[in-house]
């Protein structure tokens, strides 16, 4: 419930703040969205597995985002669409985590 409220608060904040972003940086922003989404779903899964650790969670967000940004930057410099690597990695993990979250959720319900 709290994460959903957080999402709504975030959207409202974004609408209110109206942060101007140059078009050249929109690629980085997209990757940042993916990294954050991946971390959120991963955290959900960890919490369902009773393995959640805040330190791991937050360091994971930052390291993932920084690495993704670095990959995008390198791709731009080398003239390769290297950011696709980050997109694919995050995408795969996202679906995997989503599947696990689903499974754990139903198993938990089953135990009760």
């Amino acid at each position: 419930m709290l994460p959903l409220i957080g999402l709504i608060i975030g959207i409202i904040l974004g609408l209110v703040l109206n942060i101007p972003v140059p078009v050249s940086l929109s690629k980085y922003l997209g990757i940042a969205v993916l990294a954050a989404l991946d971390s959120a779903i991963g955290g959900l899964r960890a919490s369902l597995e009773m393995k959640f650790n805040e330190k791991l969670f937050f360091t994971g967000i930052f390291s993932n985002t920084l690495m993704a940004a670095f990959i995008v930057f390198m791709g731009d410099r080398l003239g390769i669409d290297l950011y696709l690597a980050a997109v694919v990695a995050f995408g795969v993990r996202l679906f995997q985590n989503l599947a696990l979250v689903r499974r754990h959720y139903f198993q938990k319900r089953h135990w009760e």
Binding site: M1, L2, P3, L4, I5, G6, L7, I8, I9, G10, I11, I12, L13, G14, L15, L17, I19, V21, S26, L29, G30, A32, V33, A36, L37, S39, A40, G43, L44, S47, F52, E54, F57, F58, I61
Partner: peptide
Amino acid sequence: QLAIAAVTVLIGILIVTQ
């Protein structure tokens, strides 16, 4: 929940901005 909520706030801001 709080930790994940913090991240979802971030996601919200990022998505709207993007």
